[in-house]
Design a protein around this nucleic acid. Structure first.
Lengths: 350, 350
DNA sequence: CTGAAAGCGCTTACAG
DNA sequence: CTGAAAGCGCTTACAG
């Protein structure tokens, strides 16, 4: 189907009566003598010349492209980060090579064969391998990598995350301020850095207000609806069930809500749920579901700016661990807010 | 940060005592004399050689990459299609250059400068320009393009969509079978091909069962929550409101549900809503929301296979318009289905 | 079955 | 300020 051959720098040069090098210099922003510049400029528009990024990449070694490794396409979380990331990186001429195929290591290799300049990794929560492998392979190739919401010590990568412990502490503190003393947690596995931090925050709040730790109020599981469902059934079936539950993951919260519906437990009347991350479903589940809001857009922006700096060779403060602040969203009147303008449609997924 | 220089085909050749051409042939699957092949194979593993896709692209003209243009990252719809698309295209060695930045035309140009082999376009519903521009520019460059759920006549592109008219007709027919005669539609703008088709299906069903057309039951708007909300308020405030409403878009359905909640209208008791596309929120809105399920995965697969064929130069039946069948999902017992295994977690977004 | 050589379309020290 | 030339790392007709 290929049509005419693409016009090259050479044809422009010939038409403008200059050398190819001169055309190239013009293209790269080097100032020419006004008279030659004019001829080059005209030759370009006459021929309809368009640069060939592949050729430039081969010559210079950088491709102006960034690889993104993510666990799952259908993730509001990942896509929010990418959206913001793209907004800073695209104006600089970068293309995004995105991949989520299960065999991430093969995917990453494939990207590296394409001379990507950097990598953004959004690892699946609770699973170390992906981020570790990405960091290792990128390190060997000398390609900078930024990891979202995951952390390893002494690693050749930068990290962008939230203050997991602090935000959890504040979320539980809110529950305490609402008069609750029996506060449970439904959390990810303790093998996961993020889960451990959130657990620390939970305990810190209880300690701070001299509330004891109740072992049976601390539930762990995979960050999934099944995990939240199972934990929910257990907690709600206790002799003395908690009056408030801090659920550190969105999918788990949804699972919990299914359990609550099944057991005819009302939210927030029977139990206050404080969740993590916004979910489009909250609005239709209960008028009052406070949640910790991760600044996903801000994370994407910061990740982009940091990665761009690394690509540019700026290695100040490397490796860096950026921790962003979160808000705790309390919107008691969510279901009363009739005016649609007050509903943030950026949260719409469809 | 860049470490050691990457090893090239030349160093492999030297070590194996063959020419670079021979190494290249081996890499491209051409059979060598067993003895030389052995030496080459060993030299490759000893040197840790890895091919350079950029160099190959420059030489051969194809990059083994596909550009994806989409309107919005945070779209369950788009991501479902891409997920399936990737699953067929990745094993063949293709990388995906994905972009959703508002200035799609600039994005597309940037992709084209990178010698992408083909384009998948998921245009925003109700807006023609994007798909048209993509088709035009790809056509000029001789790059094959496949468009999802949009159609133009006499266009240099292939199309993959659903049977919009037929599936709408069946959805409305279901409402009729449930005993409804006053069935409204909340639809996209009539300037949009997809909306027109769905409207045709709606009218066809009414005609087929000799139900008259009621002008005030036909509402149009943008495919957005606001559109659905506004239409909902109007319909539910009529002197004789409809007893069933066919809402041809998911975001509109959500807007409608907000309107219904505001007006204290119960679903499905007061009005039966038949929606388009699955939404994770349905489960928490009502136990009974039938919806037309687009086979998003199948669309991605078909698009991938077709595009791959075009890239390979197979132009049989070009241009093609693939129309896939949809199911109408009726899950009355959704809220009763306690067993989580019956809930398709592929639909989870978080 | 394999080698020597040209060339894909650029960029960039090196001269002048 | 600009030209001539080498080279980025491959592939592929052309010989033999």
């Amino acid at each position: 189907v290929k049509n005419e051959k693409r016009v090259t720098i050479w044809e422009v040069a010939k038409l403008a009566n200059v050398s190819a090098g001169t055309v190239s210099r013009f293209l790269n922003g080097i100032v020419l003598k006004p008279s030659t510049e004019k001829r080059v400029r005209e030759a370009i528009s006459q021929t309809g010349y368009q640069k060939n990024i592949t050729a430039r990449t081969l010559r210079t070694g950088h491709s102006k492209s960034i690889g993104i490794i993510l666990p799952e396409w259908k993730s509001y979380y990942s896509m929010s980060v990418i959206e913001a990331f793209e907004s800073v990186v695209f104006p600089k001429g970068y293309a995004l090579i995105v991949s989520s195929y299960s065999d991430f290591s093969e995917q990453l290799s494939n990207m590296l064969l394409r001379n990507i300049d950097g990598v953004l990794c959004i690892p699946p929560s609770g699973i170390d391998d992906v981020a570790r492998a990405v960091i290792k392979e990128c390190g060997e190739k000398g390609v900078p990598a930024v990891i979202i919401n995951e952390y390893f010590e002494r690693c050749e990568a930068d990290f962008v995350m939230i203050d997991n412990a602090g935000s959890s502490m504040r979320a539980v503190e809110y529950g305490i301020h609402q008069g609750h003393t029996d506060i449970a947690i439904i959390n990810g596995l303790q093998t996961d850095y993020v889960s451990r931090e959130r657990h620390h925050g939970y305990r810190e709040a209880l300690n701070l207000y001299d509330l004891g730790i109740t072992d049976e109020y601390e539930k762990y599981g995979l960050y999934s609806a099944e995990g939240g469902y199972a934990a929910g059934i257990e907690l709600l079936s206790l002799n003395k069930p908690p009056t408030a539950i801090f659920i550190t993951n969105c999918a788990m919260a949804i699972g919990f809500f299914r359990a609550a519906r099944e057991l005819k437990v009302s939210i927030p009347e029977d139990v206050l749920v404080i969740a993590y991350d916004f979910d489009t479903r909250y609005e239709f589940i209960s008028p009052n579901i406070p949640y910790v809001e991760q600044p996903l857009g801000e994370m994407g922006l910061q990740a982009a700016e940091l990665l761009l700096r690394r690509i540019a060779g700026d290695n100040r403060k490397y490796p860096q661990n950026i921790q962003l602040k979160t808000r705790l969203i309390i919107n008691k009147n969510m279901s009363d807010t009739v005016s649609l303008s007050s509903i943030n449609e950026n949260h719409e997924l469809f």
